[in-house]
Each structure stands twice: as C-alpha cells, then as structure tokens.
C-alpha cells in the first residue's frame, strides 16, 4: 500500500514534510514524536480530514478508517453509536463485552466518561473492516487495564482484517508492545523509519536517541 509524498504549510510555516512510503498489510505502524512534531497532522491528512498543500493524498487503500484524538459520541445510545459503522449486533455485543462496555449498552453515549467514550469509539471503528486504519492516541484517556484490552483488540483486528494500521501514540511502551514498524517525526520531518525494534531500541539518528531517552526509554 503506497502513500505518496506530501507537505503541509500553516500561515507560511512548513509543519509537515512527508517523503512518502509503502505500508505493508497486516502490520502496525507506530507514529511517535514530541508534541507539535506533526503526528496528528500526518494522521488527519492521511485520512482526508485535512488537506495537504497540493490536492488529495493518494493511497492505494480502498477504505480508510480513522479514530480521531478527540473522540466524539453521537447523541444516541452506546450501542446505537457502535452500530453506526455496521449492523452486526452479535459483533457489537462481543466488542462491547471485550471492552467492558456491556453495562453501558443503553446509556447515552454523549454522557460517557472520557475513557468509556474512547472504548466506545474503538469498538465503533472495529465494526467495519478497513484496508487502512489510523488511530490517533486511541488509549490516551484509558486506564492501564482497558489500555491492555484495547491493544489486544487492535492486534486481533489487524490479524482478522489484514489491514495496515497506523497508530499515533505518545506512549513508547505501547509502540514497543504492539508495533511492527515505527516512524519518528521531528519538527515536521519524518526523521527515522524502520522496524519497531530498530527505531525504538537502537535508532540511528541522534535526535531519535535523545527523544527515547527523554521520554523514558
């Protein structure tokens, strides 16, 4: 799956310069970097929510799923929200049970807590099979237990759907736990890219090493 090169400029300042790359199906790509490094902009442009400087970003993916950083719950029940992306009730119940949402099935989703909303949003996205999935900080609002449950679900989803999954995360531990590849963004540039083991443990660039040391490697 190919993503072509693109750039993004805000008010005359280049905030992202992406050289393009190939994504392999069935793999998880962790996108790491400090705040303001361009991670979320990269995710939004890839999804089409934001436009790159020149036209649409081309990917070979027939379908792209996206879970934004700020999860939005529609004004309807948790179950109705989850069923928006697919009408398979059995699957919805299974996902709700796995993400500990069963008891919240009939609760208005816009009244859920931050962590519950994030789990609902993850279940909602997983109702559908996409070729390319982008998750922007999916577990940032979750506690450790539900983070682990979500990570297991993400791994299962990638295996089941054979999608390429881009995981934007500020958690190096999470990237090490589930990612196959890692992309390190620094000041809007893709500075280092490769296997998760290499980038997250023995990076080539000094900036990447500094980042890993600073963020608790």
């Amino acid at each position: 799956m190919k993503i072509n090169a693109f750039t993004k400029t805000y008010e005359g300042r280049r905030v992202l310069d992406f050289p393009g790359m190939e994504l392999e199906r069935g793999k998880i790509y962790a996108v790491i970097g400090a705040n303001g490094s361009g991670k979320s902009t990269f995710a939004k442009i890839l999804t089409g929510v934001q436009k790159a400087d020149k036209g649409r970003v081309h990917t070979d993916a027939a379908s792209v799923g996206y879970m934004p950083q700020k999860n939005f719950a529609y004004r309807m029940s948790t179950k109705a929200n989850i069923l928006l992306a697919g009408k398979n009730e059995e699957k919805a119940r299974r996902l709700m049970a796995e993400l500990q949402l069963g008891h919240l099935e009939n609760k208005r989703a816009d009244r859920l807590s931050g962590g519950e909303t994030a789990r609902m949003a993850l279940a909602r996205l997983m109702m559908k099979g996409f070729e390319l999935v982008i998750l922007d900080e999916p577990t940032a609002a979750m506690d450790m237990e539900t983070t682990m449950l979500s990570e297991r679900l993400i791994l299962d989803y990638v295996k089941e759907t054979d999608c390429a999954l881009v995981l934007v995360t500020h958690s190096l531990q999470q990237a090490r736990r589930i990612a196959d590849h890692a992309l390190y963004f620094h000041k809007g540039q893709l500075l280092e890219e490769g296997s998760a083991d290499k980038v997250l443990y023995t990076p080539e660039k000094a900036e990447t090493r500094q980042f890993l040391e600073f963020y608790g490697a």
Binding site: P68, F72, Y74, R75, L84, A85, L125, K128
Partner: peptide, 22 residues
C-alpha cells in the same frame, strides 16, 4: 466533530447530514 467522526467511519454524506440534524 460530527463530520470528522463520520468520515473516519466511512459514512456517506446523507447519513452524516442526518447525524448532524440529530
């Protein structure tokens, strides 16, 4: 937020409009 979420779920324009009205 309504549009971004709907787009992320691959929902069409008509469904997105009704979600917005809702």
């Amino acid at each position: 937020a309504v549009r971004e979420t709907a787009k992320g779920l691959g929902l069409g324009r008509v469904k997105t409009f009704f979600l917005l009205v809702n």
